[in-house]
């Protein structure tokens, strides 16, 4: 017994673009807020420097983090288990046996839909939170959720 390997599959490369867009929008909103504040509140001379630093940080975040996230995000579904890996700075690997799967959800936000991507959420009876795979292509996600539901039914039991 040595170490866990990565789950077999990456999520869609479009997820990286989606995450860039999301963090870009988030950062832009914050920077815009700061610009407005700096334009109206003229007490502090160095205020434009603050805005500049914030803009650089936001841009760096939007460039680095989605790339990092994409490198980490992976998933694998076998006949007996679901294995996911997500996060960036903090990485979380989750393994759940098929027999403990309770519900399988698909969710798409407005931006997700623009990119044709879907988040697959697999819930077990544990209060420690569900397993989640973000940025799956819609068709694949549908196919996976059907397979998961079927497998979980076959496994039987009340999943606790």
């Amino acid at each position: 017994m040595t170490e866990l390997r990565d789950p077999a599959h990456r999520v869609s490369p479009r997820a990286r673009t989606l995450w860039r867009l999301q963090s870009g929008i988030g950062g832009a909103v914050v920077v815009l807020g700061l610009v407005v504040a700096a334009a109206t509140w003229r007490e502090y001379d160095g205020r434009w420097w603050v805005v500049l630093v914030a803009a650089v940080l936001a841009a760096a975040y939007a460039v680095v983090v989605p790339q990092w996230r994409f490198a980490v995000h992976r998933w694998e579904i076998t006949d007996t288990a679901v294995y996911t890996q997500r996060g960036w700075w903090a990485r979380e690997r989750r393994i759940a046996p098929m027999s403990r799967v309770q519900t399988v959800d698909l969710a798409e936000g407005p931006l997700d839909r623009l990119f044709g991507l879907t988040t697959l959420t697999v819930t077990t009876a544990s209060a420690a939170g569900p397993l989640r795979v973000e940025g799956l292509e819609r068709g694949l996600a549908l196919q996976l959720s059907q397979r998961l539901t079927r497998n979980a039914e076959d496994a039987g039991g009340d999943a606790t």
Binding site: L4, R5, A8, E76, T78, A81, Y83
Partner: peptide
């Protein structure tokens, strides 16, 4: 049974 399939070695493609 649960963990062995994900330990280092050949990924099981499915």
């Amino acid at each position: 049974d649960l963990v062995a399939q994900f330990t280092a070695g050949e990924p099981v493609h499915s």
